[in-house]
Amino acid sequence: MAVFGLWVINKAGGLVYQRNFADGLAQLTSNEYLVLSGTLHGIHAITSRLSPTGSSSGAQVIEGESFKMTILLTATGTKFVLLTSLAEPTADTLLQKIYEAYADSVMKNPFHTPEMPIRSEGFDSRITALLA
């Protein structure tokens, strides 16, 4: 079980939080992370339209050869993306707990501006505790 990274993408497709936790992913520049988050936002929007039943929240899991991206779309349009090993069985549960930490630490902070980068020591420490 390995968690490689966490991204939080706002409803406009901008990366508002990015953190790496383990070796295994390529080291990218901040601009490359911004481009990747925007691309994932677009792919997620496209996959929500491809559903044969007509209603879908978009891609929930994208697997590569050596990693898995699990995506949680919230009611406000914020996306939480967890990058893990292929064998990670609890990514969905972990994303729910991360979302709860976000709601408690970030959204209840009167000094946080929605859609702006997350700069919260409380959120960072809760994420560290969840992934330890």
Score class of each variant (00 low, 15 high):
Thr47Ile: 03
Leu34Lys: 15
Ala132Asn: 13
Ser56Gly: 13
His44Pro: 02
Leu36Asp: 02
Asn10Thr: 00
Ile118Leu: 01
Leu50Val: 08
Ser66Met: 06
Lys68Arg: 15
Thr84Gln: 06
Arg126Glu: 13
Leu82Glu: 00
Ala87Leu: 10
Pro117Asn: 06
Ala129Arg: 15
Ile62Thr: 07
Glu100Thr: 14
Leu83Lys: 04
Gly58Ser: 09
Gly122Ser: 14
Pro114Leu: 06
Met116Tyr: 13
Ser120Tyr: 02
Asn31Val: 14
Tyr33Pro: 01
Ser56Ala: 11
Val35Tyr: 10
Glu121Asn: 15
Pro117Glu: 03
Asp92His: 15
Leu6Trp: 01
Asp23Gly: 10
Ala132Lys: 15
Gln18Asn: 12
Pro110Ala: 05
Tyr33Ala: 03
Thr74Phe: 01
Met1Ile: 09
Ala26Trp: 07
Ile98Thr: 04
Glu100Gly: 08
Asp92Met: 09
Thr29Arg: 04
Leu6Lys: 00
Ile46Leu: 15
Thr74Val: 02
Thr90Asp: 11
Ile46Pro: 08
Glu115Cys: 04
Asn31His: 14
Met69His: 14
Leu82Trp: 00
Gly5Val: 06
Ala59Cys: 06
His44Asp: 07
Phe111Glu: 09
Ala129Leu: 14
Gln18Cys: 11
Ser30Lys: 14
Tyr99Cys: 03
Met69Asn: 12
Leu34Pro: 02
Gly122Pro: 06
Arg19Tyr: 03
Ala101Pro: 08
Thr90Pro: 04
Gly58Arg: 00
Ala87Tyr: 07
Thr70Glu: 04
Leu130Pro: 02
Thr53Leu: 10
Asp23Ser: 09
Gly54Val: 05
Glu121Met: 13
Met116His: 14
Ser55His: 13
Glu121Asp: 15
Pro117Met: 05
Ala91Asn: 14
Val16Lys: 00
Gly54Lys: 07
Gly54Pro: 03
Glu32Asn: 08
Ala132Pro: 06
Gly64Tyr: 08
Gly5Asp: 05
Ala91Leu: 10
Asn31Ser: 12
Asn109Cys: 11
Pro89Phe: 10
Ala75Arg: 12
Glu63Ala: 12
Ile62Gly: 05
Ala91Thr: 12
Gly42Pro: 04
Tyr99Leu: 03
Asn20Val: 12
Trp7Lys: 09
Thr128Gln: 15
Glu88Ser: 10
Val106Gly: 02
Thr29Cys: 04
Ala101Val: 09
Thr90Arg: 12
Asp92Glu: 14
Ala132Cys: 11
Ile62His: 05
Phe4Gly: 04
Ala101Glu: 09
Gly38Asn: 07
Ile62Met: 13
Phe80Cys: 01
Ser120Ala: 10
Ser30Ala: 15
Thr70Pro: 03
Lys79Gln: 04
Val35Arg: 11
Gly42Asp: 03
Thr128His: 14
Gly122Asn: 14
Gln18Ser: 15
Ser48Tyr: 01
Ala75Cys: 10
Val16Leu: 01
Ser125Val: 11
Gly77Gln: 00
Lys97His: 11
Leu130Phe: 01
Gly77Lys: 05
Phe4Asn: 07
Thr70Arg: 05
Glu65Thr: 13
Met116Gln: 15
Glu32Trp: 05
Val106Ser: 01
Leu95Trp: 02
